[in-house]
Every structure is written in structure tokens, then in C-alpha cells.
Design a protein around this nucleic acid. Structure first.
Lengths: 145, 145
DNA sequence: ATCGATGCAAAGCGTTTGCAGGGGT
DNA sequence: ACCCCTGCAAACGCTTTGCATCGAT
């Protein structure tokens, strides 16, 4: 089902993971990429329903799982409330607003990038202890006054 | 109920938050402090039951909430599985093992401390945007080979 | 034609809540 | 004496699962 131009990159990522390219997955992915506050499954469901009215919440969850599985999204969690999903998979810093629960990317001036060299050293220390590093999660938590 | 020497520090922290000092809260706190892998509520329940056999899981959750509320513990979450609790409230780095789900503190050689100055700069940038920073969460995720 | 993906409903898990009785202040 | 805390059971919210059907390959 190719209603409009499909996302080749997504198709290939899914294929590489042994997963199929479906309208639902495409719509979920497109929505994820269109917003900069990382949405919950419920929010994705609500938004994607405009395009695919018969999509179910369960399918949204499955689509999000598929995107994570093929490396096209990241799952975030909080101490309270539902998980959130991020279309970015590179290492970056999140800012979590405790008042709204929203999570956004921290836009940093270049000279304030989290010290990659330091992270690399830390990764080395861990590796020497037999640890294989897959992700570094950094989150600044607080609220807008 | 003072079965043995009570924890004055905990009593004061609870009192300052308008909360009472109970045997259950003391036992939960003592257990939290006795382990270095940050346990789940279920693990705390299992352990504290040795001392207080009639304690309920709901009470364990409430005790953990009380400890967090009075600043004597921190709640951690993961993308999968239950929350974990940490008796440390200072900023430090966690290492999460994806195989076991366990979370431990990263013990760092002094010269590898996460750059406090950089964090302070980042906090400044956020403050200038009207953000009040309450916590910085840093987690190294991976698995032991 | 095959076999994975969808949609629905029902179950699952971790966590919270309502309430009667007990314990801290 | 007051009222918070406990323990139990029942409810809750988020997420997953079982299954018949649909659709991608």
C-alpha cells in the first residue's frame, strides 16, 4: 500500500531487521519525526488516527516497538506516567519538565556539548570491566518557572 | 516502637516533611542502605519481610514514597520492568545492566568525574530560559559480556 | 502462498487507592 | 485524643497477548 511516497530509509531499516513496511508503521514514524516533544503512545495514537482511523492502540505500541527494534526510534521512561518515544537515536541530552511531563531535546551551543572525550574515557573504564556500552542517557530534570 | 536504636537522621527528615517515624519505614530505609544494587519494591518487600513478616507490598510502596518525599531516597525507572530505589540523593552516575536489569553506581577514578563545571554551565543556559533544574540523571546502559 | 501485521478484546503487570483498624505523636 | 499509617483487597493505568483476519513479500 503506497498511498504516497514511501520512506525508503525506513523500509530498509525495517527490512534489515526482518520486519515489513506497513502504512501504520510509516504513519507512526512520520508523526514521531514531525514533533519535537517526544510523544507518548497515546499521543501517537491520537495523531495517527487522523490518517488511519481504524488503527488500534495496540498496533501503535507494536509499531513503536518495531521502530525501536529497527533502530529508528528510542523509548524513554519516567518515574511517573507512560513511556515516550524519540525518533532520534544519536546520543543527546533530554530536558524533562516535571510540570507537564514533556521531554524535549536540549539544544546546545557548540562549546557546551557534553564532553565526548570524557564519555569515551568512561566507556573505556567500563569496557575494561567487561561491560559493553550500548547507550548513554542524560536527562536534565526540572520545571519552567 | 523502638525495637533497636532508631535512625535519628531519618526521623528528622521524616518529621521535617510532616511524616511519622515507623518501624516499616525504618526497615525499608535500612535495607535500601544495606545494598548497592538499587532494588525494586518487590525486592525490598521480600527482604523486609524477614524482619516484619506482616508488612504488605502496598506499605512498602508507601514507605518508599515517603522516603522519596522526605529526601532520603530516589526513584529510578527503566524502559522495561519496575522502578528501582536508590538511597543516594546526590548526583551520581548509574550503570544499568540490560541482561539482569540491575542498576549500580558507577565508581569513578577522581580524574574521571563527570565534569561538574560543564553541568553548571548547562544549568545556567537552562536557567536563562526560565528552567529550574532539580536533578541531572546520567545512565550508562549496556551489558556485561 | 506464505507468514508477519493488524485490530479487537481480554489479560497482565506494576502501582495506587479505599477503608477499617492499629500505632505514633 | 488526634489523625496518620498499616494491611488487605480491589481498582487502576499502561502495556502486552491471543486469536481470527488481512496484507506485504
Amino acid at each position: 500500500m503506497k498511498t504516497h511516497q514511501e520512506n525508503l530509509e525506513l523500509r530498509e531499516a525495517l527490512a534489515a531487521a526482518g520486519l515489513r513496511y506497513t502504512a501504520q508503521r510509516e504513519a507512526v514514524y512520520n508523526y514521531l519525526r514531525s514533533v519535537n516533544t517526544h510523544p507518548t503512545a497515546e499521543e501517537v495514537y491520537h495523531a495517527v488516527r487522523q490518517q488511519i482511523p481504524r488503527i488500534s492502540l495496540a498496533t501503535v505500541y507494536k509499531c513503536l516497538d518495531a521502530l525501536v527494534a529497527c533502530g529508528k526510534a528510542t523509548k524513554l521512561t519516567s518515574t511517573d506516567g507512560p513511556a515516550r518515544y524519540d525518533h532520534r537515536t544519536d546520543r543527546h541530552v533530554h530536558v524533562r519538565d516535571l510540570k507537564t511531563g514533556e521531554v524535549r531535546d536540549l539544544e546546545l551551543p557548540g562549546h557546551l556539548q557534553i564532553h565526548e572525550h570524557l564519555q569515551a574515557q568512561l566507556a573505556d573504564v567500563l569496557r575494561q570491566n567487561g561491560f559493553h556500552l550500548t547507550d548513554v542517557r542524560i536527562e536534565f530534570v526540572g520545571y519552567y518557572v
